[in-house]
Design a protein around this nucleic acid. Structure first.
Lengths: 202, 202
DNA sequence: GTAACTTCTTGATCTGGATCAATGTTTTGC
DNA sequence: GCAAAACATTGATCCAGATCAAGAAGTTAC
């Protein structure tokens, strides 16, 4: 289909995201690109498995990935999705160099830019504006997780699903329903009934 | 009781936390102190109320605070606690200068160091190591919230309470039970029964 | 093109934790 | 030191969402 991007082109797709957070000259922007490694990953392939150390933060240029855990009964629990413009990693494992308790796999064939811990450190040292970039990046994610905690403490599954529809409209048509159900913390059956109820109401 | 600390002494209490994340000369450490404002707050007093913009990050030197929301039925939901060595703020409101959707109040008489958004910016500009300090600070909080999401997706209230006991042993004896119940996302009655059940088992 | 898998729906039943209500216990304020 | 609040427990009942089961679509792989 599409020709494979050269690394520089792929990095250009992060341009908007980066420049929204920090101001950067064209030369610094180019120099930053050198720290990222492009990687393609096929649907159903793993980027990280439980027990491994998470070596990279993955910036998604195209496609869709998820982070999930498996409990002692063998049920999967989706903690996070990531599509174009988002990032995904087990930051705890990444930073502590400790084994991860979860899995990252691709829900679609995807194109990624990887940033290893060593490269992150070096990038921050050589272009200090990136230190701020990562602070703001993580801060935004922090705020999103805190909202999710607040939401799950306050609202019923139905309200949480409606909030999900509003907050992530791009995800709704792209993800299988049972993945959304897992993210919401309910069973696929419960989500099916909720959708049915909402549809009947309209 | 204890004499009121001078600002510098209060800042010294953050020393361990700061130096664990960044390396800093004594002069830089002293210079950093100037950006923080000491503040005492009485039990039950508010640091932030819904509708206000969160002006400060509060570093807790002594005491205990909580962040909570109130839903449309009037129920409180505790999102976060903070004791000595922790920080508390509505980062979304703080950064976006948008009205907060929640409240921060003191559960005990407390001593705080406040850092306004302007001072945070200036501190990061004048002592770049603090940019990294805040990145790591927020990163740790991010990881904690993500774990909480994972925990709430996977485990029953009883298991979550046991995890809470292990993770925050200092909090257990200090907080009223119904505050812990709220944080766990259950009613005080449910927590009482869970505790009863655990006690009978031993 | 069809077998095998994955996804979604619908129904019947069960259950963890909510809700409502009453009582006991501890803390706080003056 | 005592009244008023705040906090904790226990019981009875209820309900949102889980679990189990079966079938209907929709996809995927050769």
């Amino acid at each position: 289909m599409m020709p494979t991007d050269r690394p520089g082109d792929l990095f250009d797709r992060l341009r908007e995201n980066i420049l929204a957070k920090i101001s950067l000259g064209e030369d610094e922007f180019r120099a930053g690109a050198a720290y990222f490694t492009p990687r393609n990953i096929a649907r159903r392939a793993f980027l990280l498995q439980a027990g491994e150390v998470c070596r990279d933060i993955a910036f998604v240029c195209q496609g869709c990935l998820r982070y999930y855990t498996i409990d002692e009964k063998g049920s999967e629990h989706v903690i996070q999705f990531a599509i174009e413009g988002w990032w995904i990693a087990d930051l705890y494992s990444y930073h502590a160099e400790a084994p991860s308790d979860g899995y990252i796999d691709a829900l679609e064939d995807s194109e990624l830019l990887l940033l290893s811990r060593e490269n992150l450190e070096n990038l921050c040292l050589s272009i200090p504006a990136f230190e701020r970039f990562f602070r703001l990046l993580i801060q935004n994610s922090f705020v999103a997780y805190r909202k999710r905690v607040a939401e799950s403490l306050s609202n019923s599954a139905e309200v949480r699903y409606l909030t999900f529809l509003e907050t992530y409209p791009e995800l709704v048509h792209r993800l299988p329903q049972h993945q959304i159900a897992s993210w919401l913390g309910i069973t696929p059956e419960a989500l099916s009934r909720i959708r049915n109820k909402i549809a009947r109401r309209k």
